[in-house]
C-alpha cells in the first residue's frame, strides 16, 4: 500500500474524540487547485462539477443565496490570513488533491481514506443554509455535501466516544498563515456526538453545484 505522508493526512478521529474543524470558508478544489486564485476572482469560472448526480434537498429552498463571488471572496480562514478578503487572494497555494482523511479513535472502522473513497458511499445533496460565522456575519450558501450523521454511522463511534474531533492540515507551505502564531495550529474543532448527529450538520464538498474553492475550505469542510 502506498505510504501516505503524515502532513497530508487530516486526522479525523480526533474527529471522534475532540473538537474542531475548518469552520472557515469553502473553496473550489478538485481539478482547479492551481488556478483557484484566478477562478476565485473571475465570476463564472467555477470549479469542476461532480460526476455523480446531486439531489436538491428542501433545505433552504425559500432562501435567496448570496452570489458565488460574494461567497468566494469573503472568508474566515486564518490559515490564509486574518483579513476577510485574504483567503481569496492567498489560498491558491493549497493543494486539495490528493487529499487523505484519517479516521481514528473510539470507533469501529478506523483507517486512512482517499477523499474520493471517503465520500463515495453517500448521495451528494444540495442544501442551502444560512451560514452563520462565529465572527458575526452570515451568508446564504448552497452547499453540496453529505449529512455528517450518515458519515458517523459508517464509522460507528463506540459507546465510549463522547466527541467528534476535526483536525485540519498542518502545512506551512500550503497554508502560510500557519507561520504566524495567531492561533494554535493545526486548527481543531470538536462536537459532541449529539451535535454531530444533528440532521443539519454536514460535510460539504462543494457549493453552487461545483467543487469548493480553496478559500471556502477545499476539498472538504464542516458545516455545522
Amino acid at each position: 500500500m502506498k505510504k501516505i505522508k503524515e502532513h497530508y493526512i487530516t486526522n479525523e478521529t480526533d474527529y471522534f474524540n475532540r473538537r474542531s474543524f475548518i469552520k472557515q470558508s469553502v473553496q473550489f478544489g478538485v481539478g482547479l487547485a492551481s488556478f483557484s486564485a484566478f477562478a476565485a476572482k473571475a465570476e463564472g469560472s467555477l470549479g469542476g462539477g461532480f460526476a455523480d448526480k446531486i439531489i436538491k434537498s428542501n433545505y433552504g429552498k425559500d432562501l435567496t443565496p448570496h452570489t458565488f463571488k460574494q461567497i468566494s471572496s469573503y472568508n474566515n480562514f486564518y490559515e490564509f490570513g486574518t483579513g476577510k478578503r485574504d483567503p481569496a487572494k492567498n489560498a491558491h497555494t493549497l493543494k486539495p488533491k490528493p487529499w487523505h482523511i484519517q479516521v481514528s479513535g473510539a470507533c469501529a472502522k478506523q483507517g486512512n481514506y482517499d477523499l474520493e473513497d471517503f465520500i463515495k458511499p453517500y448521495q451528494l445533496e444540495e442544501r442551502t443554509y444560512r451560514f452563520r460565522c462565529v465572527e458575526a456575519w452570515s451568508m446564504v450558501i448552497p452547499w453540496v455535501g453529505v449529512p455528517l450523521a450518515d458519515v458517523l454511522k459508517t464509522f460507528a463511534p463506540t459507546s465510549k466516544a463522547k466527541y467528534v474531533v476535526f483536525k485540519t492540515l498542518l502545512d506551512k507551505e500550503q497554508m502560510p498563515g500557519q507561520k504566524s502564531a495567531t492561533l494554535d495550529w493545526p486548527y481543531l474543532e470538536g462536537l459532541t456526538i449529539a451535535e454531530a448527529m444533528n440532521p443539519l450538520s454536514m460535510l460539504a464538498v462543494g457549493l453552487y453545484g461545483k467543487t469548493l474553492p480553496n478559500q471556502n475550505g477545499a476539498p472538504l469542510r464542516l458545516v455545522v
Binding site: 448570496h66 460574494q70 469573503y74 476577510k84 465572527e135 456575519w137 451568508m139
Partner: peptide, 9 residues
C-alpha cells in the same frame, strides 16, 4: 451591496 458585514467593513 458588496459588503457582507457592513459594520466591520
Amino acid at each position: 451591496g458588496n459588503l457582507i458585514d457592513p459594520i466591520e467593513e
